[in-house]
Every structure is written in structure tokens, then in C-alpha cells.
Design a binder for these strands. Structure first.
Lengths: 164, 164
DNA sequence: TATTGTTATACTCTATAACTATA
DNA sequence: TATAGTTATAGAGTATAACAATA
């Protein structure tokens, strides 16, 4: 990953109007520097890739991890409640739960009180698996700390606390 | 968006093993709190939605904006160079440029020196349009500042500077 | 042989709409 | 009528592989 200082005008522009090619490593970003969204997007790509790689041996992706974590911490939750809490579409959660149920990590139990809804639970193997996932996720988090620095990571979490 | 304090054990768990349902607003996140990736993902969703909304009147999305900005700042760049700089697949850039070229914002000129590659330029209307997009993007950035606070936004940019 | 742009495929994710069975 | 879960579709975005033209 290259670092690129802010600049307000094109770099290495030829004065005579000729075509001026740049190497990829020295391509200016102009207005992109200073956009929080751009930095956040690039960081998110890096962090998700590290998460996917670190949890690759157990084949768990960030969204699956978040679903298992919320169910583990809130047994009996409905699909709507999980979807709302994580900000994912309920239609999408259906497929996520299908795959987690096929892997025997999660059970859908018909609710007695509202027969439209399902209460969600981890299975015993699911709970055991989640423990392992959490250890691997903690390892991933140490990669983040190594990348950002301890202070910066904690400050980042404080700055973004309202979004969790 | 709700705020949720850190917690290490399930909230409102019934001691008798009975089904315990929670309202969506008080669903615990357990291990998700403390994960930088989760906070960053939620923030990125918020920031992209605001960008898309703020630039909705001109129908420009974040990726399109980043492509136009890089071409504007580095005229004559090849597709490979743009793709590398922005971290997008060259196959994906083909479609992005197709749509930007159809809208007459961008030109692909066959390179004289390497006839495999295209040199990319903004058209005159494309350059004028980009100026307007930049004004709207600055407005979006003020929304980010209002959301995070001035100091926090600047600190965030410093923390993530290596990823741009 | 390697690279540039292109086409194609597949899978993830987001955003909708519509359907069913309940409430 | 409204809501929970489901199914389906369409559009981004990501990740590949393969191909033609060119280096």
C-alpha cells in the first residue's frame, strides 16, 4: 500500500500539452485525500481481508461471525431483531441462517407466543465453534493493532462508538 | 442508530432457562464491541449512504467519483494504473469507464507508445461536471464532520492516512 | 512470455417487491 | 391492516479465468 501526500494540482503535468504518463506508485489522488469515506473504504477492505484470511481455516466471514455473536449473546432472538441490530436486510438474513443452520451452528425454533416468528439459538456445537471463532477474531484484532498502533486503534474505536 | 455499551455477558438472560426475548433496541453485541472491523463497517455504510444521497442529484456514486478524481488529477493515465491506484479490478474498471464514457465525462484515447493501452482524459464537460461533484462531495464531508466532530474527523484521517 | 483491455462467470451484498401465514 | 419469514429479482462490488492484440 502506498502513501500519498495531499496535493491540490496534478503532479508531473507536462507544460507542453504532451501526454504525460505516471507510474502507478506516484499517481496523485487530488481531492480524494481529505475524504473520510475514501480512507474508511480502503481500511475496511484491508480489515475484512485480514479477517477472512485469519478465519479462513474455519470458513467464517465477518457477517456470519456477527450473526453468531449476536445470537450467542441474545438467545431466543427473532430474525427481525437480529437483522435490525446488525443493519442487514431480513431477506438476506434468511440465506445467512440457512447456511449456518446447514452447518449445525444455529437452530430456528418456532416461537410459541408469536407463531410467525422463529427464536434463534446456537446449538451446542455452534457454541463451541463460536468460542474458537472468537479466539481467531481476537488474533485478527491483534493484526489490526499491529497495523494501526495500540493508541490509534483504541482512539478509532472511541470515535466510531456511536456506529456500533 | 442506537448506542450500545460494551458487555461481556448476555443481557437479561433468564436464570431458569426459559426463552428470553429482547427488544431490538437492547440487543447486546457481546464480542462485536471491541472489533474495529465492525465499527468501521457500520461507519462505512453510513458514510456511503450519505455520499450517495448528497450526490444523488448528479447520480454519482463513490467509486465513480474516485475514478473521475484520479483521472482529473492525472490525465493520460492507463486503465491499469487507475485500477491499481484505486484498488479495483481492471475488469470492473472497464464497465465503470463504459458508463462514464457514455455520459461523455471521460475519453479513452489509444496510446501511441503502447498500442495495447488507453490513455484516459476528462472531456471538457467532464471536467466541469467534476467541479460540481467536488462541491457536493465537500458538502458531504461537512456532514461527516457534523456527525463525528471536527477533531475526531481529523484524527480519523490521520489514523487511516496509510490506507489512502 | 508477459501485459492491456476485454468478456464472461460466480459469488457476496444491497435494495426491492411480492407472497404466506399469522397477528 | 400490519408484521415475520420467505422467495425472487436487479444492481453494485469482488474474484477469477480466458481471450485477442500487443509488447
Amino acid at each position: 500500500m502506498t502513501t500519498c501526500a495531499a496535493q491540490t494540482s496534478p503532479r508531473k503535468r507536462a507544460g507542453n500539452g504532451a501526454v504525460q504518463r505516471n507510474d502507478a506508485d506516484e499517481v496523485g489522488l487530488d481531492a480524494l485525500v481529505g475524504h473520510a469515506g475514501y480512507a474508511v473504504r480502503r481500511f475496511q477492505i484491508w480489515i475484512f481481508q485480514d479477517f477472512i484470511k485469519t478465519l479462513g481455516e474455519v470458513d467464517i466471514r465477518p457477517t456470519q461471525y456477527s450473526v453468531l455473536t449476536v445470537i450467542g449473546a441474545n438467545p431466543g432472538l427473532s430474525q427481525m431483531a437480529v437483522a435490525k441490530r446488525l443493519g442487514i436486510e431480513r431477506a438476506r438474513l434468511v440465506h445467512l441462517l440457512d447456511s449456518l443452520e446447514q452447518r449445525r451452528y444455529v437452530k430456528r425454533i418456532k416461537s410459541k407466543t408469536d407463531r410467525r416468528s422463529h427464536a434463534l439459538y446456537l446449538t451446542a456445537p455452534g457454541a463451541a465453534a463460536l468460542s474458537k471463532f472468537k479466539r481467531l477474531a481476537a488474533e485478527h484484532e491483534r493484526h489490526v493493532e499491529a497495523k494501526l498502533g495500540r493508541e490509534n486503534r483504541q482512539h478509532l474505536l472511541r470515535i466510531l462508538a456511536d456506529f456500533t
